[in-house]
Amino acid sequence: MSEIFSAFAIAFELIVSLDRELYTIIGRTMYVSISAVAMAALLGLLLGAVLAVYRFPGRRAVIVVLNALMGLPPVVVGLVLYLFLSREGPLGFLGLLFSPTAMVLAQFFLILPIIAALSHQFLRDLYLEYQEQLCSLGARPNQVVFTLLWDGRVNLVTVVMAGFGRAIAEVGAVLIVGGNIAELTRVMTTTIALETSKGNLALALALGIVLVFGAIGLNAAAYTLGGVSTYRRI
């Protein structure tokens, strides 16, 4: 138990002392996860909206697969991506293994199904509500897709933040394709795993606390920017 108390003390000390290594790691963590979330949101939200609006053969199969992939273990994503990016793999020539880019890709593939499946679920309900009205006004399906994305933005922020939460919290995938190389691919979660394996439980927990506060801050920012506050008053 004493670890928990000293963890808070260490966390506080790390934050206020502007520990250079800590802030570099936080910066790298944010860079990797935000890049992954930006890419996954771009594609995932569009995919979710298209699945909600268009009817095409194989649509149900895509939805089932996306829902199933939401529970994909990060280690599996990391392993598959490792086999692709390894020098003996089909994309080995790119030399991306053990780079931040590889970690971005790992998190991208990890959260794409989450963002696509959750946004599809939500946008399908919104489409049911809007369908007759939009059709009556003469909106074409491609216009409907963007209407849903815009009008659903408040809930879609939550969807994207769910993806972000998973990206920033996972360790299995980035450990395999990033290699936890100091000053290059070491992020918050891999540092926590490393410090735990060194027996520095309090320091590991302190980093966890910092991670949680970072996530809270980012979520708050996202919700404010997403205009949730305006709509919650309604």
Partner: peptide, 28 residues
Amino acid sequence: RRQAMVFQKPIMLRRSVRSNVTYGLKVN
């Protein structure tokens, strides 16, 4: 498209009052 419909339960787009009107014009 020179026809329009008003429903029993009005479906409001999650936008401002004005944007609800301009939206129909925009898609046309």
